[in-house]
Design a protein around this nucleic acid. Structure first.
Ligand SMILES: [Mn+2]
Ligand SMILES: [Mn+2]
Ligand SMILES: [Zn+2]
Ligand SMILES: [Zn+2]
Lengths: 147, 147
DNA sequence: CAACTTATTGCAACCAATTGCAATAAGGCT
DNA sequence: AGCCTTATTGCAATTGGTTGCAATAAGTTG
């Protein structure tokens, strides 16, 4: 268990935010998801536990958790996807042909991070970068994009 | 003039697509924009030339031009931004604190592109990558995200 | 534990974007 | 130039997500 509930609570309180049952449920839904989840999937999971929670709260809370950097967001094909901010960072290679999403090692981008840091004095978020392109199967020829 | 209209036409025709006044106007609107533009800005510009053109066509055509790789898309802060696919590729550093968007040289990512190509047999789109993070001004402390 | 402040929520109105469908028109072929 | 096929468009309905606002309740203070 990398991020105990107490950690979550103190992290919120230290910045004047509050710990609510809604936030706990939404955080848990993302935490216990197998992989990246859509807002709709989060809503479904949360709704099962407590049908009174509104969609607006789902969207607002997912945004909020992103800003808190407790979850990561990924936009692809007109859809947002969320994932718990894991202990070990990773990046993604997203194929615009078939949509397949491969994980890749974080150290791969370290060189870029360092150069940008020095050259532009800009700190890249190096915990969850998505790079788009074509996978080995799709690069044969100009396939139509999945979405 | 890097991409003459005739080039545009043949590119469409060669794949069974058609050249319409709508597509030309939308393409021009993106081409002549100073920088990245939103669908709404494109709509405004096009609407000035021809008020009959619907919003649906704007959205559909921007998607279409992306798939044709004639324009580039960038998603940030819940908004899509479009830009002409220029002769010379470039990347962006987008600050999640203040929203400032810096251009950076394309060769910066070449190492990553090469490694990923070899290791994952995955071809990264290296003409327009956006990397998110914090600019020199915003990395002082935990500032609230702009959006 | 009661009173208080204000962050957070649910609701409903709202807005941007997508979609089904029938009308239109681009481009190919005589 | 006229005819034909079907890609593309405009329209209207719909969806998915956002926002203003009043009600609620988390956390603080005494
Ligand atoms: Mn991930
Ligand atoms: Mn750009
Ligand atoms: Zn693929
Ligand atoms: Zn900044």
């Amino acid at each position: 268990m990398a991020r105990p509930a107490t950690d979550f609570a103190t992290r919120l309180h230290s910045q004047g935010f509050r710990l609510t049952p809604q936030r706990q449920l939404i955080m848990d839904a993302v935490r216990h998801a197998a992989r990246h989840v859509t807002p709709d999937e989060v809503y479904a999971a949360v709704h099962r536990q407590n049908p009174a929670i509104s969609r607006a709260t789902i969207y607002r809370t997912l945004d909020f958790l992103c800003e808190m950097r407790l979850i990561h967001a990924l936009y692809w094909g007109g859809q947002m996807y969320y994932e718990i901010a894991a202990e070990q960072p990773h990046h993604h290679l997203v194929c615009r042909g078939c949509g397949v999403m491969v994980e890749c090692a974080p150290d791969l981008l370290q060189i870029v991070v360092d150069v940008v840091e020095k050259k532009h004095r800009f700190t890249i978020d190096m915990d969850h970068v998505a790079l788009f392109g074509l996978c080995r199967h799709c690069r044969g020829q100009g396939k139509k994009s999945k979405k």
